[in-house]
Design a protein around this nucleic acid. Structure first.
Lengths: 106, 106
DNA sequence: TGTCATTGTTTAAAAGTTTAATAGTTCACA
DNA sequence: TGTGAACTATTAAACTTTTAAACAATGACA
């Protein structure tokens, strides 16, 4: 595998974090395995849309799914996803704080 | 700030990781402060294009920039960005290994 | 078995966003 | 003022997301 190809795949996995609905799903999936209707109650919106996002996240390897009867249960593929997500949230919070301080100075 | 708005901002920061060139920049910036021409030697491509990506990353708060005369030096805004990036790379590697094992089983 | 509700996926079109490349502008400084 | 480096604006192409409808799989139960 070329270095370039590896950067592409790496970016592709990161891209799977880059949507508000998907961040919300990761947030919910930290605690517990859920099936689509439960996520749907949390996030709102259309079931087909949520299903597409869940399937993308599974394809990119940040969720894993397990079918049990009528339901498919989704959970984080690894705790690393939750950790990375938390770090990026901290980066956001640090930035918001910095901006707040800049505003206060005026 | 609403929870929804926070998820949007969080996703926005994560989105800044979701491009091969930007992953490559983060990779290079881990080690050292760089100005555009140095990044350009590493990544290749067009100067204007790289400049756009650097500016987006700065706007989203994953890089910070310091102007010194003609040159602008970019570095990671925090080590958390490098950590998150490394975790996501591990998620990718774990997935690649899993796929490899599946292939070997056939 | 047949029917029904529930769950989840697929598809396709429209709407929206991101990217690369170009051309043009600003900036630092000799 | 002239030069080269960095940045910005613009645009078309590529990609992602949303929406809505159709479809498929499962389980309950008369």
């Amino acid at each position: 595998m070329t270095e370039r190809r590896f950067f592409e795949l790496h970016a592709d996995v990161c891209k799977a974090l880059g949507h508000p609905l998907r961040i919300e799903v990761i947030d919910a999936a930290k605690k517990k395995n859920f099936a689509l209707p439960t996520f749907l109650k949390i996030t709102g919106g259309l079931k087909s849309n949520l299903s597409q996002h869940l399937s993308l996240m599974t394809k990119k390897g940040i969720l894993k799914s397990r079918r049990d009867g009528q339901s498919t249960y989704f959970s984080l593929s690894s705790n690393k996803v939750a950790q990375a997500c938390r770090l990026m949230r901290e980066v956001l919070i640090d930035n918001l704080k910095k901006n707040q301080k800049l505003i206060e100075k005026l």
